[in-house]
Design a binder for these strands. Structure first.
Lengths: 346, 346
DNA sequence: GATCTAACTAAAATCGTTTGTAATAATGAC
DNA sequence: GTCATTATTACAAACGATTTTAGTTAGATC
């Protein structure tokens, strides 16, 4: 391996000079710089990252802590972060997030040991207190898809309440008022916010919310499998809805996976979508556009948010000024496709 | 940050001893070990990865080089590798693979600079020669989804020819003989192998292969977008097939994405699947089981293969013996679902 | 041409580990 | 009790960079 010393020797300068040339910092004479650059190219020198990180305590590495990469939702996050990282000449390291708070903390600790200043975490399991403390210690830590008021400047999040509201309003505008909700068991805030948005919209339109039309998935163990469980969750929850014998003309699902599961269950039971029952999802993932009927859903701009989060993290450790104390809120948007039927007014 | 020196001082031993305790290597007296371990826990000492990597030239880091993480196929690879890595106490670093040979090489180079001995690459763009040379330099390099005879011991791959053959045989067994093939433009071997398998099966059954029923996708630019392009590729290629006016009762698609695209195009044109036209895919990704009709396809055990590859890489850098010169071939399997119709014999 | 300043370069300390070698302590044989 | 032998532990030199300090050279001024 060719080191900085080899280059220095070959160029007949000191290692300090080579270092300055490499990092393009400090004053170096023009002819000297040119000479060194030529030698660097000639020898194919590339600075040793570990040595660099050791002394400078930074490694230009971006850490990702996320639950499950085989779910395209999280894959999208990784992809977005990776793109920004590449652009900014950062490496990307994956923290091995397990399925509890301890796992997340361990993942972050492991990242820090590698001199990773910039970390993006999709935290599902850690408490607010834990995350707030971590933010104090790590200036480059950014939370994605989560909002904690006291560290708002570190949170890149989507307004789930608005998401719940606009999907409800869309159904109401299509004259649905017997709306069932299939939600997911999660120990984070999202499902609650979406339901809050649903209730707000219903009440604003003068409808009473029937709690018995809200079904919470009971397949807790399935969640951990990511996408591959989502549709099953949707199927089983929709089945319970069906068996309850209640009247409904539309379903709001927690996400597209559940929506597709529910849709398939209805279809398999000879219930037409959307003619008999309308369905609306959330996330706008790939499957929502390839199923038939194509799923009307709420767009969750994950990739965009992930890119934003990566950039934010870099800014936080670089420019420090002006960045903190901003708010980083994204808005969901309705994606109108073919799974919602326009009811005749009754 | 608490360093090895802090521990040494507090325990009243030398850093060498602490190091031995930490790595559980070399002889250390029992009471001494206990004392050091206690102090380590007390101070919360964790060794600095970069310092460690600097001197030992290894970092217990597994590198992944893969094109596009938002495609669940590649996400699955990452997921599989990550699981093994976690189990074996390795970190995971993503090489930023761009869409050409240079990008792949650069990604590997970047990984090496980080002291990353173990690298799993899904190479789409590099030539055999390049990869063979890299394998010589890097004992821990493993290729996934690619086979190069002279470095067979480093290749974890699927027999695509067999895959093409069994999907064809399945259709033949269901009395289809007018079979159209929708294949993808790729600069790797896979599509060719699958078609070879198709032709073998046809000829073994005494059917002549009509080349005019083989359609190659012309949406080269779409490929780079991963999954989100696959279905469009399928649609446009199926459209060309339809417009050719030829007779066919079944379609073999290059992968599930294309199969779903083709299926949707047929459905949208009022052609029933599978009653009018049967379709068979490849990969057995998530979407194949959630579309209706559910897609009959060929299982591609990516996650399993990724795990195997990760383990192989570790073995290659650890046990060195017995590992090289083995062959690491996986076999595709038919997943029978509902997109193939059993034709009456004519 | 001497002196002072500005522009650069050289040398050395440091970062937190690992590891080969030397020193010490403990054990056992006689 | 002495000496050889081995089990422990300490010392110190790397590893490959960055960065501070001190030093050299060249250019400018008079």
């Amino acid at each position: 391996m060719v080191t900085i010393k080899d280059v220095a020797r070959a160029a007949n300068v000191s290692t300090a000079t080579v270092s300055r040339v490499v990092r393009d910092k400090g004053q170096v004479g023009d002819k000297c710089r040119a000479k060194v650059q030529k030698i660097i190219k000639q020898l194919g020198y590339r600075p040793n990252t570990n040595a660099r990180a050791l002394v400078s305590k930074r490694s230009d590495t971006m850490g990702i802590v996320t639950p499950n990469l085989s779910d395209p939702f999280f894959g999208g996050i990784a992809q977005g972060i990776e793109e920004v990282a590449r652009q900014m000449q950062y490496k990307v390291m994956m923290g091995n997030s397990l399925h509890d708070e301890e796992g997340e903390i361990e993942a972050i600790a492991s990242l820090r040991e590698n001199g990773c200043e910039n970390i993006i975490i999709h935290s599902k399991y850690s408490s607010n207190e834990t995350l707030i403390k971590l933010c104090e210690e790590l200036p480059g830590l950014v939370l994605i898809n989560r909002f904690i008021p006291s560290i708002a400047g570190r949170c890149v999040w989507l307004d789930n309440t608005v998401g719940g509201r606009i999907s409800t309003e869309y159904l109401l505008n299509n004259n649905h008022k017997d709306i069932a909700v299939l939600t997911s068991y999660y120990n984070n805030q999202d499902p609650h916010d979406r339901i809050r948005g649903f209730k707000m919209a219903m009440e604003m339109a003068g409808h009473t919310v029937k709690d018995e039309l809200i079904f919470v998935s009971d397949l807790k163990q399935v969640i951990k499998q990511g996408q591959n469980g989502g549709n099953l969750e949707g199927e089983s929850t929709a089945k319970r809805l069906l068996e309850s014998g209640q009247k409904f003309t539309a379903i709001i699902a927690y996400n597209d996976h559940m929506a597709v599961g529910a849709m398939n269950l209805l279809l398999d039971n000879g219930i037409r979508v959307p003619e008999d029952v309308s369905i609306i999802g959330f996330d706008n993932v790939y499957v929502s556009m390839i199923v038939r009927p194509q799923l009307t859903t709420i767009n969750y701009p994950v990739v965009q948010m992930a890119k934003y989060a990566a950039q934010l993290s870099i800014d936080l450790t670089k420019d420090k000024e002006n960045v903190e104390n901003k708010t980083h809120l994204f808005m969901p948007e309705l994606i109108e496709r073919n799974s919602v039927y326009h009811l005749k007014e009754s």
